[in-house]
Design a protein around this nucleic acid. Structure first.
Lengths: 200, 200
DNA sequence: GATCAACTCGCGATATATCGTGTTTATGGA
DNA sequence: TCCATAAACACGATATATCGCGAGTTGATC
């Protein structure tokens, strides 16, 4: 589904550059990478450990056990490899930053969030059914109210997503002025006031 | 920060009940729990494995290695314990469903999402600064535009969160009528139309 | 009966390792 | 030179285990 953040061979080089600063263990590398990219990209263990094994196999790093941890350090051969490809390193960081931003955008659009509470409801309904419970949708008035709340939530979510898309494409086309943002803010405040009036 | 999903001692009992159905290994238990609660609650490994160790220590389950896996099975003593507390089990499922829903609400409010792209930008700015790059905030017009987009996103997020809170507490107090939801929907559509008019 | 110290528990964070899938790159023969 | 196919790679999923914090429970002592 989602494309890799690091292009072919780039993670290898980047990990090597991190080990050039100081020896680290696997988990520390994951954290270091996460920190470098603002917490938006966190390589999984399944990405880091095979890379470290390979680097060791190639003789570019050494492995040393330290209690629960396994510390990896760069070798001279590793430093040589790094030096010979130093020019690539700068470009890699920019590429990763870009692809991470794209990734964050997709996540943020997040239809998946709305799905969550629905799934929880389904699971609970299924459980109730398996036991002998009524589970009829018109049993308590609270249930209808909850349904209304969920409806409202979906509406709010859809609205937010649409506005996001609208504003993003506008920004890409011709820039987005602060005035529009201010107007949006004001109108949203007005909607909230209107709804609050209508309540109770 | 967030309260535990399972109350004191409840996870222990629930795990035991899952093992009463069939023997499983640790990871399988995590998946089974996740499935039961619609994917909204996934106990971490740090929750499951200590529990399994304790249960084994108490003689309520047995451990058996099977290649990469470690299969746990319930013992007679385990079944006895389970039988003597069967009445508690039903209540536990309901409690968990409730607390999971509350948890999902907090996550869905998600200010954290908006923070992510901000952190990515900060990280990239920091990196640019460390090299010799300009990185002045008025270099490209796209940067200001992006800032405006993010501002708008934050405003949208805040609005959604506030409305959610408003509507939820109203629903709890005196129920939420479909009329209000309809009104909200209409007003949101109006806001979108207004903003679209103002663009380009 | 109150209280407070010791213990238990749920849980995220820390730590490591392998497997399977889908891509990308390299290579070697036609 | 082209292209098939093997090798390398990034990555999520699978799998296990420990540590330390904070909150809850229990029992002992006053």
């Amino acid at each position: 589904m989602t494309p890799p953040v690091f292009a072919h061979g780039n993670l290898r080089l980047y990990v090597l550059s991190l080990l050039a600063d100081s020896p680290r263990h696997g988990y520390e590398l994951i954290q270091a990478l996460s920190e470098r990219f603002g917490g938006t990209y966190s390589p999984s263990a399944g990405t880091i450990y095979p890379r470290l094994s390979k680097l060791e196999e190639e003789g570019l790093v050494t492995k040393a056990s330290d209690g629960r941890k396994t510390v990896y350090a760069i070798t001279d051969a590793g430093r040589a490899e790094l030096a010979s490809r130093e020019s690539e390193l700068g470009a890699i960081e920019d590429e990763v930053t870009d692809s991470v931003r794209r990734l964050a955008d997709e996540v943020r659009a997040g239809v998946n969030e709305a799905m969550r509470s629905l799934r929880a409801d389904l699971a609970s309904a299924a459980r109730d059914a398996k036991r002998g419970r009524p589970s009829n949708s018109h049993s308590t008035p609270r249930q209808d109210s909850n349904a209304a709340v969920r409806e409202a939530e979906v509406a709010l979510n859809d609205f937010r997503q649409q506005m996001r898309t609208d504003l993003r494409s506008q920004a890409a086309r011709a820039g987005l002025s602060d005035a529009v943002v201010a107007e949006l803010r004001q109108e949203l405040a007005q909607v909230r006031a209107n709804i609050l009036d209508r309540l109770t």
